[in-house]
Amino acid sequence: MIGHVSLTTREWQLAARPHGEPKPEDFRLVEVEHPDPTEGQVVVRMLAMSVDPYMRGRMNAGKSYAAAWEVGETMQGGAIGRVVESRSPDVPVESLVSTNAGWRDVAVLDARTVQVLPELPGIPPSYHLGVLGMPGLTAWVGLFRLAEFKAGDVVFVSGAAGAVGSIVGQLARLHGAAAVIGSAGTPDKVRWLTEELGFTTAFDYHDGPVAKLLAQAAPDGIDVYFDNVGGEHLEAAIGAFNEFGRGALCGAISSYNATEPVPGPRNMGLMVGRKLSLRGFIVSDHADMRADFMQKVTPLVTSGELVVRETVREGLDQAVPAFLDLLRGGNTGKMIVKLADDPA
């Protein structure tokens, strides 16, 4: 047993609902006293937490696919930790676990709400927040189930240097795509996609109209589009689709901070003549694919065939700055906030 830990925790709370782009003053870091764990509970010291684009939606009031965070309450999100105290036979002390109790350094949780993770030699625990976690599964589900990818497809990925997009493009390449095209927001990200991840080509969407840049990158059209951005990128993809093109709509980060409704694609009429399919999805509806995903992707990570990159910020104090930077595209690969060294 690692020993009893203080149950005074540091936690980030939502101080105010943001209007447009979130500001540092919309959040506050507080100390919270927790009672000792009771039967069926565990104490988890967090090693790393995730910041993700979907969290911006949870800061708004109103109904969405994920419950809104309440002002004055501790926020939630994916985190990886070690169990330092346990009152449950199902979750032993020293277990590596995933939780939805991010945005804090220590948590007292019902054992049934944590998932014990396998110990994977040579794989950092934080990978369970990225390539082997929700972003990786999102890439797998969107590409293979929603977009019905098949070898020989030409694939276009927006937000291609992010946690999800970077995995989508590599999975498509490893499974026989004819070409993989990525869109990203800086020249360095474009170089990373082509020189390290094996994308056929990529472009910086700041360099001109996306439709024009995509037409140059894919002169013969695209078969699959994986959308992390929405807006102009989605319109460009619709215009570039070949017959029977398929789109998996994962996110629309270009509009997350909008204060007014944004215009939709103006070329939806093409969907009929080209017989296109656009399917939105939330990864939590596809948990049945997780076992197959882990079986297939873990060896790709271990062997180095799947290139993984993290943008790491150190310490709970950096959680909000990391999140704000994420929304501005300040990450390459998965944005992680490291909270503690792994004692194992």
Rank of each mutant, 00 (worst) to 15 (best):
G3T: 11
H4T: 15
H4N: 09
T9I: 15
R10C: 01
R10I: 05
P18S: 06
K23R: 12
K23W: 00
R28W: 04
L29S: 03
E31W: 01
H34G: 00
P37A: 09
P37W: 12
P37L: 11
V44W: 03
R45N: 00
M49D: 10
V51C: 02
R56T: 02
A67R: 12
A79W: 12
R82N: 06
P92E: 11
E94R: 14
S95Q: 08
S98Y: 08
S98N: 08
T99L: 09
G102F: 12
G102M: 09
A111P: 07
R112H: 15
V114I: 13
L117A: 08
L117V: 14
P124T: 04
P125E: 05
S126H: 13
Y127E: 11
L132P: 10
G133H: 05
G133N: 08
P135Y: 00
G136M: 03
G136Q: 00
G136E: 01
F144Q: 00
R145P: 01
F149T: 07
F149A: 06
A151R: 08
D153Y: 12
D153E: 05
F156T: 02
F156E: 02
G159R: 11
V164L: 03
V168N: 05
G169K: 03
A172C: 02
L174W: 11
G176Q: 01
G176K: 00
I181F: 00
W192K: 02
F199V: 07
T201A: 14
F203Y: 06
G208A: 04
Q216Y: 05
A217S: 14
A218P: 02
V224T: 12
N228I: 00
E232R: 12
A240C: 01
F244I: 03
A248K: 00
I253P: 12
S254Q: 07
A258K: 08
T259F: 01
P265F: 04
G269S: 14
G269N: 14
G273E: 02
L276N: 11
L278K: 03
V283N: 07
A291M: 07
D292W: 07
D292G: 11
F293R: 02
M294T: 12
Q295V: 09
V297P: 06
T298V: 11
E305L: 15
L306M: 07
R313V: 06
R313C: 04
E314F: 08
V320Q: 01
A322G: 03
A322P: 00
L324F: 06
L324P: 00
R328C: 06
G330M: 13
K334N: 09
I336L: 13
V337H: 09
K338A: 10
D341H: 11
D341W: 09
D341K: 09
